[in-house]
């Protein structure tokens, strides 16, 4: 289509810091520069950025905004709208508790309460030692195994409250 736009050719300063190294910005820039068009591609770019940095801090959002020539508010509006995007860094491991309906009726609410007590965090928070992030997620689609807890990509099915200590301990070492 003729109406499609090319990426902004302007040069944008990279807000490099200890947590946000230059190589990661370079990778993101290369991805954006190689796009056929950036029209309508903001969500795709944010997916890539979260993939690279692990999260979407303010500086990364502003960098993307400048790179695309759009207001930072527009980028933040999209980031805050979608639950998949996060503005906070994650722990070394992410513990996701499925809060789909199937898991809920099989006791997922009690599982997440116990985990909050054990890890001393609320949902979407990181433990003090930086080891775990606790998340409540929507249906991971393993309803036959309800209630389901995922640690990173590993799925634990038919979880009971008394199993939780073992699951956590296995990732502490």
């Amino acid at each position: 289509m003729k109406s499609l736009t090319k990426p902004q050719a302007i040069s944008v300063t990279k807000p490099v810091s200890e947590e946000l190294p230059k190589e990661k910005f370079d990778e993101l820039e290369e991805f954006i520069d190689n796009m056929e068009t950036t029209k309508g591609a903001l969500i795709e770019i944010l997916h890539k950025a979260q993939n690279i940095f692990g999260y979407l801090p303010r500086d990364v959002q502003l960098y993307i905004a400048r790179k695309l020539g759009i207001p930072g508010a527009e980028v933040f509006g999209v980031v805050s709208f979608y639950s998949y995007f996060t503005t906070k860094p994650n722990g070394k491991h992410t513990i996701s508790v499925c809060m789909g309906t199937a898991c809920f009726v099989r006791g997922a609410d009690k599982i997440i309460e116990r985990l909050k007590e054990k890890l001393e965090v609320e949902s979407n928070e990181i433990t003090e030692d930086g080891l775990f992030t606790l998340k409540d997620v929507r249906c991971v689609g393993a309803c036959g195994l309800a209630p389901v807890v995922m640690v990173d990509d590993k799925v634990f099915g038919r979880v009971k409250e008394e199993d939780l200590d073992d699951i956590i301990e296995a990732y502490r070492s």
């Binding site: 969500i43 795709e44 944010l46 997916h47 709208f81 979608y82 639950s83 998949y84 995007f85 929507r138």
Partner: peptide, 8 residues
């Protein structure tokens, strides 16, 4: 393919 980002 376009990806959603978690919004019902």
């Amino acid at each position: 393919i376009k990806f959603g980002a978690g919004a019902f």
